[in-house]
């Protein structure tokens, strides 16, 4: 029985959590360390690789990123950088949440980097109350605990703008 991966033009089929299938060129899939390891260890003889944690919308985004980076030559770093910044520009927080999880799960270092940076940029220069609202995080500090955290870091609260 021939291995399903025989040459660089071979394609893989990835299946999202909601059952949608994506036909992907092998060199694009190799952007993901998870998939690379699967291919290396020949776990990929299955026709379809299920990605049960990633929905179709997110997987389409991830594969768009992988394709761009796989196809670009290393001399086009500037072009890739502008692609990266455009890629996340108007993304809503929900999509970003799914994307960072997918990048982490599929081990796509570059995508994880830019997604984490985008999330960090969202936090910068905003009062923590506003950060809570943006991320829908419930404040689980009691007023006393919150005061204690502030006290503990008083040097920062006094020292920084």
């Amino acid at each position: 029985m021939a291995s399903s991966i025989e040459n660089n033009n071979e394609k893989l089929t990835l299946k999202s959590s909601d059952g949608e299938e994506f036909l992907v060129e092998k060199h694009v899939a190799l952007q993901s360390t998870l998939l690379q390891n699967m291919l290396d260890s020949d776990c990929s003889s299955a026709d379809v690789i299920p990605l049960p944690k990633i929905d179709a919308r997110t997987l389409a985004l991830v594969l768009g990123y992988c394709k761009k980076h796989a196809d670009a030559s290393s001399s086009k770093q500037g072009e890739l950088n502008s692609f990266d910044s455009e890629f996340l520009k108007d993304m809503d927080m929900g999509a970003l949440f799914n994307l960072v999880l997918a990048a982490n799960f599929m081990e796509i270092k570059g995508l994880l980097d830019i997604a984490a940076q985008k999330i960090a940029d969202t936090i910068k220069d905003k009062p923590h109350q506003e950060v809570r609202e943006i991320f829908h995080v419930e404040n689980d500090y009691t007023p006393e605990e919150e005061a204690a955290v502030r006290e503990e870091n008083r040097w920062a609260f006094e020292g920084f703008p």
Partner: peptide, 18 residues
């Protein structure tokens, strides 16, 4: 994510959220 925040952003914002 937090390792991309510096000083005031990390201490006054990120860590105070929850």
């Amino acid at each position: 994510i937090s390792s991309r925040l510096f000083l005031g952003d990390l201490i006054k914002r990120f860590r105070c959220v929850c």
